[in-house]
C-alpha cells in the first residue's frame, strides 16, 4: 500500500513539507470565518449574554486537548506495535500542541466560569477537573520524554505511559463526576441545553476545524524538525542541507 511509503522519515518529511502550507492556509481561512461569525454575526445568548462567545474558543480547545491525547496514545501504540519511527515522532510532536490546547481550555473555562458561576474554579465540574488532570498527564508525558536521552527508549517509554494514561483518563473523569454527584454540588447554575442554532453552530464548527488544521500544520512542522535532528547523519539530510546552503 502506498501509505507504507510515508513511514520512511525521508518521504514523510517531503509529504509534510507539502501539507504544511495547505493546512496553514486552511487554518487562516477557517479562523477568520469562525472568529468573525463568532464575535460579530452570532447573537448574544439570552442567558449568558456576550460571555457565550468564549465558548467558540473554549469548546473546540477542550475537544482538541482530548483528541490530541488520544492521537498521541494511538500513534504511540502504533509505534510500539509496528516499530515505526514516524508514529513515535508524530506522538512526540503532538504533546506540546495538546498541552497548549489544554491550557487554553482551562484558562477560557475559568474566564467563563467567573461571570457565569461566580467563581474562577469549580471543583465539582467534572469536565474542568479532568481537564486539569489531562494537563498533568501531558506534563508527565513530556517530562518523561525530556529526561530520557536515548530517543528510541524515550519513544517507547512515553508510548507506554500514554497508553496507561488513556486507560486512566476516562476513569478519572467518571470518578470526578460521581464524586461530584455525591458531594451535592453547591448550586452551580447549570445551563440547560437548548438545541444549538446555526448562527452559533457555524462559528463553533469552523473554529473546531481551524483548530484541527492548526494542529496538523504545527505537528507536521514539529515532526519535520524532529526528523531532521534524528536523521542528521543520514545522507539525504546532508544533501538537503547542502542544497539549502548553496542553491544552484
Amino acid at each position: 500500500m502506498f501509505i507504507y511509503k510515508y513511514a520512511a522519515p525521508r518521504n514523510f518529511y517531503r509529504l509534510a513539507g507539502f501539507l504544511v502550507p495547505v493546512f496553514a492556509v486552511l487554518t487562516v481561512v477557517l479562523l477568520a470565518v469562525g472568529l468573525y461569525m463568532g464575535f460579530f454575526v452570532s447573537p448574544p445568548d439570552y442567558e449568558q449574554g456576550e460571555t457565550v462567545r468564549i465558548m467558540f474558543i473554549h469548546v473546540p480547545a477542550a475537544w482538541m486537548s482530548m483528541f490530541i491525547y488520544a492521537v498521541m496514545a494511538t500513534s504511540g501504540a502504533a509505534g510500539l506495535i509496528w516499530k515505526t519511527k514516524i508514529a513515535h515522532i508524530f506522538a512526540a510532536a503532538s504533546a506540546p500542541v495538546g498541552t497548549v490546547f489544554t491550557v487554553i481550555a482551562l484558562i477560557t473555562g475559568s474566564l467563563w466560569g467567573a461571570p457565569m458561576w461566580g467563581t474562577w474554579w469549580e471543583w465539582t465540574d467534572a469536565r474542568l477537573t479532568s481537564e486539569l488532570f489531562l494537563l498533568f498527564l501531558f506534563f508527565g508525558y513530556m517530562a518523561l520524554r525530556a529526561s530520557i536521552d536515548d530517543p528510541r527508549r524515550a519513544d517507547r517509554a512515553a508510548a507506554i505511559l500514554a497508553v496507561v494514561g488513556i486507560v486512566d483518563l476516562p476513569i478519572i473523569h467518571f470518578s470526578v463526576e460521581w464524586w461530584n454527584t455525591l458531594h451535592q454540588p453547591a448550586s452551580v447554575g447549570k445551563i440547560g441545553r437548548p438545541s444549538i442554532h446555526s448562527s452559533m453552530l457555524i462559528p463553533l464548527l469552523s473554529m473546531a476545524l481551524a483548530f484541527n488544521t492548526y494542529f496538523l500544520a504545527s505537528v507536521l512542522i514539529r515532526a519535520r524538525t524532529i526528523i531532521l535532528t534524528r536523521e542528521y547523519n543520514k545522507r539525504w539530510v546532508t544533501e538537503l542541507l547542502n542544497r539549502r546552503r548553496n542553491p544552484s
Binding site: 488532570f133 498533568f136 498527564l137 506534563f139 508527565g140 517530562a143 518523561l144 529526561s147 530520557i148 505511559l161 496507561v164 494514561g165 486512566d168 476513569i171 478519572i172 470518578s175 470526578v176
Partner: peptide, 18 residues
Amino acid sequence: VRGSGVLVSLLVLPLYTP
C-alpha cells in the same frame, strides 16, 4: 533516568486520583 525521584511522582500522582 536522571531525576527519576521527582519524575515518578509527576507520572504517577495524576493516575492516583480515582
